[in-house]
Amino acid sequence: MGSSETSKLRAVLFDRDGTLVVDVPYNGDPGKVRPMTGAKAVLDGLRADGIATGVISNQSGIARGLITAEDVARVNARVEELLGPFDVWEVCPHAEHDGCDCRKPAPGMVHSACRKLGINASEAALIGDIEADVGAAEAAGATGVLVPTPVTRAEEVAAARLVAPDLASAVGLLQGTP
């Protein structure tokens, strides 16, 4: 099974905060949504290539009572207004101590997204800005790519197998283009 054809890339999933949009902690205000530089072009390119796109987002602010599920839905709707439609959305509303199987780095949301898309996890990748994103991808059998921001810890960067300076480079890595 040494062929690279064994798992063709069919979907790229993205962390939301710090990856697709500028991280505003516990954001419930659609007016504060700001796309990361280059995000729209990367997404448009994937869509043009027929590759599914999705968002995988921990939103523990819901469990903590800081924001509502409706707030998150409004913010997500604004993300789509700015960046275009996504094929799948997965949101974990739980806090760290809830012991759910969806909160990254658990693989639950990646598995769910792949089921909804009708693909194997090996045909998906997850791009994010922290170790939990890469961990969720790898736990699910998908490919994880870390795109560090100033808040990404050095040890997270050192531990990641695939690291890219920006979203375009991350997708290039996944598609085997320099």
Rank of each mutant, 00 (worst) to 15 (best):
C102V: 00
A52Q: 09
A168Q: 13
L167H: 11
C102T: 11
P105Y: 09
G135R: 11
L83G: 10
G61P: 13
H94G: 05
K116S: 13
A142N: 07
G65Q: 05
V145P: 06
D166K: 04
G141M: 06
G141D: 01
A139L: 07
V157H: 00
P107A: 13
R153Q: 13
A48I: 06
A48D: 10
C114D: 10
L167R: 09
P85S: 14
S169N: 04
R47C: 05
D98G: 08
G61N: 13
V163H: 00
K116T: 11
M109F: 02
N120E: 14
S122G: 13
L162S: 00
E155F: 10
G65N: 06
A125E: 11
D133E: 12
I127F: 03
A113W: 12
I119R: 00
K116D: 13
D101A: 06
S122K: 09
R74T: 02
A77V: 01
T149K: 10
V163N: 01
N76A: 04
A139S: 12
N58P: 02
I127T: 01
A168W: 05
V75L: 07
H94P: 06
V75E: 14
T68M: 05
K116P: 00
L167A: 08
E81N: 12
S122T: 09
V147C: 08
C100A: 04
G118I: 03
A63W: 12
A159V: 03
L146S: 01
E81H: 06
S169C: 05
R115E: 15
G65Y: 10
V157Q: 03
I56S: 07
G135I: 11
V163Q: 01
P107D: 04
A154E: 15
I56W: 12
R153F: 08
V91G: 03
V72C: 13
R115H: 12
V75K: 01
R103I: 00
P85H: 13
G128C: 05
E131C: 00
C102S: 09
I130V: 07
A142T: 09
H94V: 03
L117G: 02
A139P: 03
N76H: 15
G128Y: 05
L162K: 00
C100L: 03
H97A: 14
A168E: 15
A159S: 09
R161M: 06
S122L: 03
E81D: 15
A124L: 07
V88P: 00
V110I: 14
A140L: 10
V151L: 12
E90F: 05
A136N: 02
D87R: 01
V75D: 13
V110Q: 08
L117K: 01
A136F: 01
L43R: 08
G54E: 14
A140I: 11
H111E: 04
L46E: 08
C92K: 13
S60E: 15
A52F: 13
K104E: 02
E156P: 00
G45Q: 04
P93C: 01
A63I: 11
G45W: 06
T53K: 01
V110D: 08
T152Q: 06
I130K: 15
A77I: 01
L82N: 11
D133I: 05
L46K: 02
E155D: 15
I51Q: 03
